[in-house]
């Protein structure tokens, strides 16, 4: 058994899985970064990312397992949790033995962790869709900052593309120095390390202020329940919220 390494992309991971399948190998560990200490004692096999092979692998998974399995794999992958690759590989291997029935074993040790991670990432994506706050910049662009626990930009981009197709928007993940940007035709994931906020349009603060007034007035004083509010809206979600920052 060996340590296998890939470039950290989902395509790269799929290419790696395709290689493992063809060669009939079982990995001891799958990593995306070089680690010199380990590399001294174990052989590390690097697999070059290959778009075509990745696509083929995904199609094979959709056919032999299910399209739902593909969705679960990508979503769990985006958790970027340490060791997630090996968990995904075990799920895949189990799926190759039971086929489309794979997700009917939610308690199986190869399946349960993937379901759990996919659920957590899905929840984070859903919450993030709600707490994105666009601000209009002087250039007429709409800019938002988020710091999600998982890498959810790709999961939320289609939602905002459909909804705000007539706006040039950019959502900046400051935790990862990445952004997803929409130019009224397509969205793209790019690296982005802006600090601070770009200059805002003249009317922006007025709308923000009206929103804060609304937000303060909508709470019923006799029912004040800060604990419940805290539970629903933990601190990490509040950092970029117009009404609470």
């Amino acid at each position: 058994m060996a340590i296998w390494r890939y470039d950290g992309t989902f395509t790269g991971f799929l290419t790696l899985c395709a290689t493992l399948v063809t060669q009939g190998e079982e990995p001891e560990k799958i990593v995306s970064r070089e680690n010199n200490q380990e590399d001294l004692f174990t052989s590390v096999i690097f697999v070059e990312s290959d778009e075509a092979r990745g696509e083929k692998m995904l199609a094979a998974i959709a056919a032999r397992l299910s399209p739902e399995s593909c969705r679960l794999l990508l979503t769990a992958f985006l958790s970027e949790t340490e060791g997630v690759e090996l968990l995904l590989w075990r799920y895949l291997s189990f799926g190759r033995t039971v086929g489309a029935n794979c997700d009917r074993y939610p308690a199986h040790p190869a399946v349960a962790p993937i379901h759990r991670l996919a659920r957590a990432v899905g929840r984070e994506a859903h919450s993030t869709m709600g707490i994105v706050r666009f601000q209009e910049t002087t250039g007429g662009q709409w800019y938002a900052t988020v710091e999600p626990a998982y890498h959810v930009l790709e999961l939320i981009a289609p939602h905002f593309a459909a909804r705000c197709g007539e706006m040039n928007w950019l959502i900046h993940d400051r935790r990862r120095d990445l952004a997803v940007a929409w130019n009224k035709a397509e969205w793209r994931l790019t690296t982005f390390d802006l600090r601070g906020v770009p200059p805002l349009s003249a009317g922006e603060e007025a709308w923000a202020s009206l929103w804060r007034s609304y937000f303060a007035s909508v709470a019923i004083p006799e029912r004040t329940n800060r604990r419940l509010q805290q539970q629903q809206l933990p601190k990490r979600f509040r950092k970029y919220l117009t009404e609470l920052a």
Binding site: A219, T224, R227, Q229, Q232
Partner: peptide, 27 residues
Amino acid sequence: RANTKGGIGNAATSGICHSWSADGRCV
């Protein structure tokens, strides 16, 4: 409800909460 060409907005089947007010109710 889907967005229309040149329009703004659509409806998300699952619904989306955008904030929570001081009484803990979703906004």
